[in-house]
C-alpha cells in the first residue's frame, strides 16, 4: 500500500464517520434527505462497479431492490430481521448470477432491454406466488427507525466502497478494464470474460437486494407497484452517469447534487415536479456529457496547464 492509498483510506473513513453523525443532529428533515442520498449512493456506486468498466447499462436495480423488499416482507413473521437482510443479499447474488449466465452474452441494447424486463418478470413471479398462496398484504411493523436505517445504509456504503476498492486492485478489476476497452482482446489474452462479468454483476445484485431489505421497514406496507417501481432503475443510472461511472467516488458526486435538486424541485414546484425533472435531465446531459467527474478533470487539467505555463 502506498502512502497516497493510506491517505485516501483515512480520508474515506473520516468522511464516513462524519456522515454517520447526521442522525445526532436530531433533524428529521435532513435525516430524510440524507437517507435518500445514502440509499442512492449505495445503489449508484454498486451499479457503477459493474457498468462503469464493462459499459453494460443495467436497468435491473428495481428487480433486485424489490426482491430484497419482498424477502423481508414474506419472511418477516418467521425469521429474525437480520437474517433476512443477509438472505436478501444471497438471493440477490444468486439471481444476478443466473441472469448474468443467461444474458451477459447479449450485448448493447439487448442487455439493457432484458434487464428492464427483469424487474417486471420478478414482480410477476412474486405476485403469482403471493396469489397462489393466498398470502395477504405484507406489513413490516418493526421498531426500526430512520436513524437505524440510515446507519445501516452508511455501513453498507462503506462495504461497497471497500469491495470496489479491492476489486479495483485485483486481477478481476484489471480483467474488467480490459473487457471494457475491448472484449475481443480480453478473450484472446486468456481472460474468462463471461466468468468475470458474472462475478462482478453479482455485486450490484446483492447490494440492491440488501438495500431493498433495509428499506422494507421504512415503507412498512409492501406492494409490488411500490417495491418494483421501474423509476428506481432509471434514477440510479441517471445519478451514476451524472457523477461519472469511471471512478469509485464518481456516483457520489452525482447523487448528492441530484438528490438536492430533486428535493428543491419537489418542494418548490409541486405541480410540475416531473416536468421540471425531465427538463433538468436534458440540461444535465447537454451541459455535462461526461458527468461531474469529467467536469472536475477538465478543471484540474486547466489548472495544471496554467501552472505549467507560469
Amino acid at each position: 500500500m502506498t502512502a497516497a492509498e493510506i491517505r485516501t483510506l483515512i480520508l474515506a473513513a473520516l468522511a464516513l464517520g462524519v456522515a454517520a453523525l447526521l442522525p445526532l443532529t436530531g433533524s428529521g428533515y435532513w435525516l430524510g434527505l440524507g437517507l435518500n442520498i445514502a440509499m442512492f449512493t449505495v445503489l449508484a456506486t454498486s451499479w457503477a462497479l459493474f457498468s462503469g468498466p464493462t459499459h453494460y447499462i443495467s436497468l435491473a436495480t428495481a428487480a433486485f431492490f424489490g426482491l430484497g423488499t419482498y424477502t423481508v416482507g414474506l419472511g418477516f413473521e418467521t425469521l429474525p430481521y437480520w437474517s433476512l437482510v443477509a438472505l436478501a443479499g444471497i438471493l440477490g447474488a444468486v439471481l444476478a448470477a443466473l441472469v448474468g449466465l443467461a444474458t451477459l452474452r447479449l450485448s448493447g441494447v439487448y442487455f439493457v432491454i432484458f434487464t428492464l424486463g427483469l424487474a417486471e418478470l420478478v414482480r410477476q413471479v412474486i405476485t403469482w406466488a403471493q396469489n397462489m398462496s393466498g398470502q395477504k398484504g405484507l406489513y413490516v411493523l418493526t421498531d426500526i427507525t430512520e436513524d437505524h436505517i440510515y446507519w445501516q445504509l452508511v455501513g453498507l456504503a462503506a462495504l461497497v466502497y471497500l469491495v470496489g476498492w479491492l476489486i479495483g486492485r485485483s486481477r478481476l478489476g484489471f480483467a474488467l478494464r480490459i473487457i471494457g476497452d475491448d472484449e475481443e482482446v480480453a478473450r484472446h489474452s486468456g481472460i474468462d470474460t463471461a466468468r468475470a462479468k458474472v462475478l462482478l454483476f453479482m455485486v450490484p445484485g446483492a447490494v440492491a437486494a440488501i438495500t431493498g431489505a433495509m428499506l422494507a421497514p421504512r415503507y412498512v406496507y409492501i406492494e409490488p407497484a411500490l417495491a418494483f417501481t421501474p423509476m428506481l432503475s432509471f434514477q440510479v443510472v441517471i445519478m451514476a452517469l451524472l457523477g461519472g461511472a469511471g471512478r469509485l467516488w464518481g456516483p457520489l458526486v452525482g447523487v448528492i447534487p441530484f438528490a438536492i435538486l430533486w428535493e428543491t424541485i419537489s418542494s418548490t414546484f409541486p405541480n410540475q415536479t416531473m416536468l421540471l425533472l425531465g427538463v433538468s435531465f436534458l440540461v444535465i446531459v447537454y451541459v455535462l456529457p461526461k458527468g461531474f467527474v469529467g467536469l472536475i478533470d477538465t478543471v484540474r487539467r486547466r489548472l495544471s496547464n496554467r501552472e505549467g505555463w507560469t
Binding site: 430524510g32 434527505l33 435518500n36 428499506l215 421504512r218 415503507y219 407497484a225 411500490l226 417501481t229 423509476m231 428535493e263 419537489s266 418542494s267 409541486p270 405541480n271 415536479t273 416531473m274
Partner: peptide, 14 residues
C-alpha cells in the same frame, strides 16, 4: 400541496 409521485419514499420526504 406536494406531489409524492406515487412513491412511498417521496411521501415520507414530503
Amino acid at each position: 400541496e406536494y406531489d409524492d409521485q406515487t412513491n412511498p419514499g417521496e411521501t415520507i420526504k414530503a
